[in-house]
């Protein structure tokens, strides 16, 4: 695989729920080591799109290419096998378990008798967190319930990257966080890109997006409404695309501007 091949490429993805067309002919491309922001108003199709990538929804038509090869993702396990991990907004952590136990949830290191190998798990958790510079957690043996929102987000992200994943999808990672904790999570996102991982960042907050994203894909009413390089655009331009963007790709009928 050359460095030019995108890690993930979606071509002409369409998805309908009954008569409602949630996605229509959507393209998305994520390069290696790139933070791709996916923005759009409520109902623009962001969640449907990532759920298609994660294997929760099947797509009606269109092609998914992972590292240049066409793939079909029919379940979360398929996505994980390819190296795609999703961190959902509600994080899916067990509050009563500690950091190590959450990092290894469902994938515990054990021997043939199903006996846990705690030292290995503890060591690798510590190494992973350190490599991501998540240093504010006092002890990796404290229950997740005692962590702050930013720390919990960090644990969820670290769990996603620990399994040799190539693409991490973050759903609104800063939505419920304060200023300092948002900064903590954003620098973590930046570090993922630096380590060669690809990131799809879904966010409502354009300030956050402009801090970390390399490129920005805008969805509007289930269609592509713009693709911007962060360094060559402004927040105003992106906002215009979100609220009033014309579809960049029209198949069949030309769309009238609706707003």
């Amino acid at each position: 695989m050359s460095d030019e091949t995108p890690v993930l490429e979606l071509r002409g993805i369409s998805k309908s729920f009954g008569s409602v067309e949630a996605l229509s002919d959507v393209d998305l491309e994520v390069r290696r080591g790139e933070v791709m922001a996916l923005v759009g108003d409520n109902g623009a199709g962001k969640s449907t799109l990532i759920k298609s990538i994660a294997g929760i929804h099947s797509v009606d038509s269109g092609e998914i290419l992972f590292e240049g090869n066409p793939v079909s993702i029919s379940g979360p396990k398929d996505a994980a096998k390819l190296g795609i991990e999703v961190v959902y907004q509600d994080l899916a952590l067990c509050d009563n378990l500690d950091v190590v136990q959450n990092m290894y949830l469902g994938r515990e290191s054990h021997n043939v008798l199903q006996v846990l190998n705690e030292p290995v798990m503890e060591h690798r958790t510590a190494t992973t967190l350190k490599s991501l510079a998540v240093t504010t957690i006092r002890s990796i043996r404290q229950p997740v319930a005692t962590l702050s929102g930013g720390q919990r987000q960090s644990v969820a992200v670290a769990r996603a990257v620990m399994w040799n994943s190539k693409l991490v999808i973050l759903d609104e990672p800063t939505a419920a966080l304060g200023v300092a904790q948002t900064e903590q999570v954003l620098s973590l996102v930046r570090r993922l890109g630096e380590q060669g991982l690809s990131v799809i960042l879904i966010s409502h907050n354009l300030h956050d997006v402009f801090e970390v994203a390399d490129r920005i894909t805008v969805l509007r009413l289930g269609r592509n409404a713009g693709l911007f390089e962060r360094t060559k655009t402004t927040q105003e331009e992106v906002v215009r695309a979100i609220t009033a963007g014309k579809p960049t790709k029209v198949s069949g009928i030309a769309m009238e501007e609706t707003s």
């Binding site: 979360p76 959902y88 994080l91 899916a92 952590l93 067990c94 509050d95 009563n96 378990l97 136990q101 949830l105 469902g106 994938r107 515990e108 054990h110 008798l113 199903q114 006996v115 846990l116």
Partner: peptide, 20 residues
């Protein structure tokens, strides 16, 4: 054991356990 760990996980957050 993994079984014991999963008992705690299901009791703590069944949805998280299922997704894991």
């Amino acid at each position: 054991t993994t079984f014991g760990r999963h008992v705690y996980a299901v009791g703590g957050n069944a949805e998280a356990a299922r997704r894991a």
